[in-house]
Amino acid sequence: MNASPFATSARTATNRRVESVGKTVLAGVTALLILPLTAILGLLVIRGAPALSMEFLLEAPTAGMTAGGVFPAIVGTLWLVGVSLAVSAPVGIMAGIYLNEYAKANWLTRMVNLAIVNLAGVPSIVHALFGVGVFVLFLGLGTSILSASLTLAIMTLPVIIASTKEALAAVPMAFREACWTLGATRWQTIRHVVLPNSISGILTGVILQVSRAAGETAPIMFTGAAFYLPFLPQSVQDQCMALSMHLFTVSTQVPNVPEAIPYATALVLLSVVLLVNMFAIAFRTYLRRNRKW
């Protein structure tokens, strides 16, 4: 074949056109993704603005939840997030350390890791079933902050374990070996070298679970979150309101709610979640820049 220079360049031109079309399509697809985030945020801001004010954040709902604010829901969310993380963070981190630093590579460890991966994939409503069955009924904790928080804790636990393991695994094995040859014990090595160089990655994982726990609804619906409470919770044995639950309530369960109230509630919830996430991301970026090796 004596291909003429024209033929070649024509094909190159076609290729180039295909490439630029393809690239544009992909860029469009990606834009389609970013659109919802901005559109949702914009819509919540525009439609929620009329209701949003300092009073909205600092007052309780009034007039059968058709007026007033979301203060008790904010307080309740803080309780739930705080108590659940107080349980799942230490247990999850220590379990992650155990699995990455101590557990022998045998079938039991493989089973456990498999179970943890799958527990992380269990639908949140199945966690709700477990919470109702075990914490509310079997252990007799009733519908309470404690029950709801424990349910959330079980839900966040596998993810914290996984992110802890990942952060620990990022510390090179050579550091551990160097410490051991210097006569450091396993625990000294973890305490003085492995943890200081992974704690920030571990914490980032925990912070991300803060935002997840704040956003979840299904696991707390039947275990401790109430539609409406005329008082603030005094202890973990009380029920509480929650932002996520409150959004569900005012948008589906209560008639004649002015449009701005659910929008403003959604905006508050989304802001909390996104701010916590952005903080975690900023933290992580900062850490990556300041790695010691």
Partner: peptide, 24 residues
Amino acid sequence: GLKITIELLAAIPSVVWGFIGLAV
């Protein structure tokens, strides 16, 4: 920037998505 946006998108609580379905 795109990766962070995707991450934030993943963080939107499902009840907010449900609300969008309902209200929008």
